[in-house]
Design a protein around this nucleic acid. Structure first.
Lengths: 104, 104
DNA sequence: GGCATATATAGAGACTTGTCAATATCGATT
DNA sequence: AATCGATATTGACAAGTCTCTATATATGCC
């Protein structure tokens, strides 16, 4: 898949993986989560988890805060808002029924 | 990237490409679009466009309607609603400030 | 500094994906 | 049936992505 420059696409690409969506959902549910506590997506090796977290960081989905050896991840509100706006954008203008076809 | 079974992930994966997001945006703006009229994403070969359209079909984003030799594509409302719900889900539960950290 | 724990990075392998040229299929017209 | 235009499919290629083992880096404690 091509690396995108559009921030919207970057957000989507980062979320478009089962493991990473699971991470996002856990963050949404719990607020801030220590890297050691990502359990919903477990069954993967630590480096794999670390890699996924990096993808999310790079795309701007998450912010990190280190407490000693522990690193806490949380959702960046700007990213969430952007994602929300994107979905709204696709929805808002697609309110037209597909039967608008008939007039063409 | 791993092939996902979760419908949410499938929607995201299909949208997570610059060309395909452009297509979705055009469909959102115009309702139903003939395959021959996808212009926002042009600069790509016809087979590439066709491939992208297939990805969107397979993921459930679009419905098709043939009129003679022409095929019209439109957004499936169910997909749009699902996408919207997904964004709402991530947002709704992430309303907590990251400063909730302090209590841990 | 040595040691332990947490987590990131490097490298390799298997698999997936975007791209295009060539070709096949579909529907309409003659 | 032949021909044409629209569009899907096939096949090959290059690049990207997920996964894991091994290792490096960061922090804290003694």
């Amino acid at each position: 898949m091509k690396r995108a420059t559009d921030p919207d696409v970057q957000l989507l690409q980062a979320a478009a993986d089962p493991t990473r969506l699971s991470i996002l959902r856990q963050l949404s549910a719990e607020g801030a989560v220590c890297a050691c506590n990502f359990t919903d997506c477990c069954g993967i090796a630590q480096p794999t988890l670390s890699h996924h977290l990096r993808v999310l960081r790079t795309a701007g989905w998450v912010a990190t805060e280190r407490h000693g050896t522990w690193i806490y991840y949380s959702l960046r509100p700007e990213a969430v808002a952007r994602f929300r706006a994107l979905a709204g954008e696709v929805e808002a203008r697609s309110a037209r029924p597909a039967s608008a076809l008939a007039s063409s």
